[in-house]
Design a protein around this nucleic acid. Structure first.
Lengths: 178, 178
DNA sequence: CCCATTTCTTAACCAAAGTCAACGAAAAAC
DNA sequence: GTTTTTCGTTGACTTTGGTTAAGAAATGGG
């Protein structure tokens, strides 16, 4: 889907660029979210805490955007957002978005298309989870996002892959021998 | 989110009600989808075929709606839709939807909200998959959708839970002893 | 009603992940 | 720069799921 230069400029103009230190929590579980982010540099991690354990749901790096599921709604967020590196990001708000929809009604369709793309991506993730072993998921991650393996702590990668840190360590050891 | 009586009636009026025999394939992988469904009676299953194996992604029963991810787009569907029981469903088309958006512009926002709700639901599913064992997932399913355990074949439930049919059989046996 | 096919269960064995504990390395705090 | 904490790896052991194979139960078609 293409958008006009005019709209592109309007989006860029209305976005704030902010800078966050490593460790900054952008959104806490239970809080109302009213910002979405476009990562220019750095890495944002989204995670739940369930039974006292962190479950990492995703990592957002350069050129990826994070729209909290509760963004712009009155429902509290189900998860945390945390900068795991010093991060520079474009920040958007619902007010700004609403304004955008009024100025350029075609952007609402654009949003819908983008959200549908996220749905498709998530369906694939879930299917891979049902189908593949942890080892296969790690190999897939090496292909898809090799940078993550370098820049993200092992225990966070482990929870992202759905295994214990010890298991991830053994998986890596096994693969090295091959 | 509430919708006006007027819109509700317009939606009902424009939908076709169709009836399908058990085993009917509503959508094949690779085909373009141009229908979405609202299940009035029966059960529709969505599934991938990956490396020759079926992976069930969801079951849609009474009062649930199925919107294929490729619905209304030119991209082919990533998965199959099959009626696993004799099914009666309301059928919608993109044309009808577009018409609806023109008549009632507020329904486009409604669609967006609904799609976002699907995203949230999927995020939860994935988090539960990362966190819980197959046994825990089965127990959860017993709580959330006890009817499925009665009406759906075990091997389809197994692929929905991400295990082999033999494992599901063992899980059930284990739980019976407790 | 019977036969053929599909589905479900069980058993035996193997591989892999979870758990608990220990230790060294790396990172953070002081 | 040293101390303290966190993180990553390893080992021993247990539990659980995958695989293969066989038989029982249910289903469907003629």
């Amino acid at each position: 889907m293409t958008i006009s230069k005019e709209i592109e400029e309007a989006i860029i103009e209305s976005a704030f660029i902010k800078s966050y230190k490593k460790g900054t929590v952008l959104l806490e579980e239970g809080k109302i979210s009213n910002e979405c982010y476009f990562v220019i540099k750095g890495c944002i991690r989204s995670y739940y805490i369930k039974d006292g354990n962190e479950i990492t749901t995703d990592f957002f790096t350069e050129d990826q955007s994070v729209t909290p599921s509760a963004y712009g709604k009155k429902t509290p967020s189900a998860y945390y957002l945390e900068c795991i590196e010093d991060t520079i990001a474009g920040v958007g708000t619902p007010e700004q978005e609403t304004e955008m929809y009024q100025k350029f009604p075609e952007t609402e369709s654009l949003t819908r298309v983008l959200v549908e793309a996220i749905v498709t991506k998530q369906q694939n993730s879930l299917a891979e989870f049902k189908m593949d072993s942890p080892e296969e998921r790690y190999v897939q991650l090496q292909k898809d996002r090799p940078d993550l393996i370098q820049r993200v702590p092992q225990y966070q990668l482990a929870s992202y892959l759905g295994v214990q840190p010890e298991s991830l360590s053994r998986i890596r050891k096994r693969l090295n021998k091959k």
